[in-house]
Amino acid sequence: MSDNKKQVVRKDAAWHELPVGGIIPAGGTAKEFKTGDWRTIRPIHDREKCIDCMFCWAYCPDMSVIVEDGKVVGFDYDHCKGCGICAKVCPPRVSAITMVPDSEADAETKKEEEAV
């Protein structure tokens, strides 16, 4: 899909080279639009606490909760906008999702990488 899109809509295309009417002659192209960079806070998932009730998966407006074999395994940070709905709908007695400022999360990741 990604290759198809790049082929039909070049970034530097002149007005007369574009498909008519603003269409993109390919499907599922929202995936190419990385909305993750709109985010200032990110959800952090605690696998130990999670009961896999799927509330977060059902409520996520960006299909950014990753589920494998019926288990929540994390988030798609390329598309998660950090709205916090997942943390809000996570049952209070479970509280498996916490929202953390991206700056802190990035600093944490950097520290871990340096330690390695």
């Binding site: 007005w15 993109i24 599922g28 192209t29």
Partner: peptide
Amino acid sequence: DNPITFGPLDLQDFYFEHKRAQAE
């Protein structure tokens, strides 16, 4: 068989070209 994206967000990088084509 040939899916398309219709009415996508058209920002600073493409909207102007689409309007130029419309004018033509």
